[in-house]
Amino acid sequence: MAEKLIKVEDLKTQFTTKRGLVKAVDGISFEIKKGERVGLVGESGCGKSVTALSLMKLVPAAHNERVFGKIIFKGQDLVPMKDSQLKEIRGKQMSMIFQDPMTSLDPVFTIGSQIMEALGIHQGLKGKESKKRAIELLALVNIPSSEMVVDYYPHQLSGGMRQRAMIAMALSCEPELLIADEPTTALDVSIQAQIIKLVRELSANKGTALLWITHDLGIVAHLCEKIIVMYAGKLVEMADTMTLFENPMHPYTQALLRLAPKLERGKGRMPPIPGTVPNLIDMPPGCRFADRCPKCMDVCSQEPQWMEVEPGHWVSCFLYSKDGKN
């Protein structure tokens, strides 16, 4: 049994806005083992990106954000940590890549200098040595002529190349956890495949655990060992990949799997989920999927519990009890 790397307990992230309190993440718990590849799946506005930023303690301070709960990373709780302590973790033990490779690199510094910055902070590398390492890292992520690219500015590279450079930067200090927030959404499918393949290889070679955030069930099906499904700020289901696809329990997961674009002979309408994702401000009590759920019951006006109904298979739905299916 692999060791626990990060354990999230009842994590809540809230913003105060002019329109009210936004409970973007509302009490989620999960864990990632060392070297494990986990997918966090959900539609826009479900809180998956905020979860990622919360784990890195990067929630934008401008919105008067508050983070509650525990984020136990290798035995230390990150929630009460100050920036000066987090510096030792960010980039060194836990790093992140972002959705839009066009905006996640500082446009006024070269690719090399941005990689070297992290190397300087965490490994004390300077000058030629640092540059040599930066070139090696760029080569590691399959960037051709890396000794030239190291001196390029971000705008001189294509989206795919920038995302590779981001990965090189994120992996520069061989972190134990890489958080990827929709890193291939902005890329073409053939470039997406290159990036996924690269991350899968690097993760396997270096034993880096992965939290891959996406709306695309197709990607996590082929990349991750465990999948977490999120809806309106809460977790609805968590299981290993095979189990989740073969035996989805939560009606939302079932609907997502049914609707995910796939290739099948024959056409026809798809039975859609009615309605839209609820507003995260002033959320009503009870199950958040209730008003779109085909299996909604009276009890659903109460809060369902997040529980392990089968070993390793977690779900929050009144259709299931701790002993398995009702």
């Binding site: 197709g218 099906a221 796939k262």
Partner: peptide, 10 residues
């Protein structure tokens, strides 16, 4: 192109 479409089925 067809071989890299992420089909939601592991």
């Amino acid at each position: 192109l067809m071989s890299v479409i992420p089909i939601p089925d592991p």
